[in-house]
Design a protein around this nucleic acid. Sequence first.
DNA 1: AATAAAATATGATAAAAATCATATTAAGGA
DNA 2: TCCTTAATATGATTTTTATCATATTTTATT
Lengths: 159, 159
Amino acid sequence: MKTSFLYLFYSLPYLNMLSNSSKYAIKAVLFLALNASEKKKVMVKNISKPINVPQAYIAKLLQPLVKEKIVSSARGPKGGFYLDETNLEQPIISIVNIIDGEKRLNSCLMSLKKCNEEKPCPLHNELSASRAQILNNLRSRTIKDLVKEVKLGNAFLPL
Amino acid sequence: MKTSFLYLFYSLPYLNMLSNSSKYAIKAVLFLALNASEKKKVMVKNISKPINVPQAYIAKLLQPLVKEKIVSSARGPKGGFYLDETNLEQPIISIVNIIDGEKRLNSCLMSLKKCNEEKPCPLHNELSASRAQILNNLRSRTIKDLVKEVKLGNAFLPL
DNA sequence: AATAAAATATGATAAAAATCATATTAAGGA
DNA sequence: TCCTTAATATGATTTTTATCATATTTTATT
């Protein structure tokens, strides 16, 4: 069945739900989940290369994630980043919320400032169903879930 | 069937294929296609309100579209914007190419500067299939097609 | 012809996102 | 204890995107 172009069109508003920074952060976290452990910490430079994000940039993105306990780290020699069990249980959405702030994902899809639950814009209800679905995914899936899916075999890791 | 979160994850790189400006422009053009004609031109201020984009902003976006014959216009009293038959036959992608430039849609999905056809990045081939599909849609569908679909009845117009 | 209404052209400003640089702090190993 | 390694904190810079402002040109109408 041919996908309706309208589908694409309607999805336009979603195309900015995540910032580049969030995407980078997700990539980095997934990379750590797959390649690091408490016994095998990974340094920023060894993260930035494979996921292809400038070192100083990804380093900065990792800071708040460490502070909010999405990622673990250790300084000094033998130091680096990794995920512990608790980290792995965090939902994907927390990464986005930390990097982009809560507002972005929750604001009006049409960027209509005056639009809100009480006074919804024309599209609010129609769109919010599919948005809710996306949000739900981000909320209910943990990093671990993501790792599981990757390992199960759809298999290639987008870096 | 539950959508794999991986699907979402893999689609991350696409989330920036279009700029906001392009989306605004597409909205404006579709709005004109549905509401204007040579006999019933629409002024910028009457476009900007319903599609909810600042007047000066959408005015600026319309200029290059007029110059490239995606949109028609007339100055002075009774002037305004509209689409003629030729305009309606233009593919959606031309809007994007004019507003964002050709580069954006064609550059590496992972924003890898060194990546190109000869020296593709690890993801290039996997991703390029689905990208090709999107591009193909944008290339093969005209504004008229879009209007037709809207009128046929999936029906609501996202403004 | 004069007037007014519209697009057009141009550029200034603001805001956000991305990137770079550097000094500081903590930890391990000699 | 001292040195080195690595994260951390901070902030500066650059680039891109979005927005605003204003003067100019064209055209219909009177």
